[in-house]
Design a protein around this nucleic acid. Structure first.
Lengths: 163, 163
DNA sequence: GTATTTTATGCATAATTATGCTATGATAAA
DNA sequence: TTTATCATAGCATAATTATGCATAAAATAC
């Protein structure tokens, strides 16, 4: 295979990717209500595709159309995408960021290295564990409110196993 | 106004509400891919409406259709962090900002849309409710320490009424 | 090299969803 | 009471979105 062909291939491959990136950018920065609107915006940005392609992009990106309070619609990134947090990802963030885990009553305290609490907390929220009523995190500490003391104990046990 | 009329009014009013509750239930428990599918399920559950009505329900409930990894689609509840407070003058900061309220023991956890916890917390502090010992708020969660569990329960009840 | 498979996309159209108009019944006002 | 206003939902249809089929180009296999 010639070098130029490789280049073309990469360009072609990137085309879809960059277009999809552009789509995400667009819907994050303005209210796009229909695929045709998106089509026009993309055209302006130099991406000439048909509505069919955009429909497929939207499926691949798992974008969703949601109602505005006013009655119109706009596309946005599905928040359920963020939930696709596999345990592996959690483990690495957790082991990297957590210093100490303890509990008192129905409260679990997760001590993190400074600045990492937010990240670890977000990851923990994403795991959607049973028994968690809510979480607050500061700079280096996460406070996890559990339904009861037993849940707290269980969680601490689980977390200690991970480390 | 006669008693019967009141009853009818309430029934009529509840019809939409209970139907929408049924819709939420349905989409949470099985994969509903289209509004027609939903229509059939609702029929089975005793709600005879047309697709148009379902479309409107979906708009009101702000449900979204999202792609499954397999290529099909299903409806789900939007986890949209709608921070567009300004767009809706009808709602108070509380209804706009609060997502979920729960408690465990003497702690009340108020889950807010990201970034709104501070604002909501300030509003709550200003209300000067009885039984509140103190509040802490992170990015999206407020932790309210109550005098005791009974107070916590009461507060949660009050907050749920507001929403 | 050629053949085969895969990927991206357009076109036309099917499938799905949203909405203007209207009717009906409830609520509020006069 | 009578009239006006408001909310719900059906019907028909417009608007929007998804997809089967075809094509081209690229990746892979032979």
């Amino acid at each position: 295979m010639k070098v130029k062909e490789i280049a073309n291939a990469k360009d072609a491959n990137n085309l879809k990717v960059t277009r999809q990136e552009a789509i995400i950018n667009l819907i994050e920065n303005e209210h796009v209500g229909t695929q045709n609107e998106l089509l026009k915006r993309l055209e302006e940005a130099g991406f000439a595709v048909t509505q069919a392609t955009i429909s497929r992009d939207i499926r691949e990106l798992r974008l969703v159309k949601v109602a505005n309070p006013g009655g119109s619609y706009h596309y946005e990134i599905s928040k359920s995408n963020d939930n696709s947090l596999d345990s592996n990802k959690f483990y690495s963030i957790f082991t990297a960021g957590v210093n100490k885990v303890d509990y008192a009553n129905n409260l679990v305290v997760v001590k993190c290295f400074t600045g990492l609490a937010q990240a670890v907390c977000a990851t923990m929220d994403g795991m959607d564990w049973p028994g968690i009523v809510g979480t607050v995190s500061g700079d280096d500490t996460i406070l996890v409110v559990m339904r009861d003391e037993y849940c707290a104990m269980e969680l601490v046990q689980k977390l200690k196993e991970i480390r």
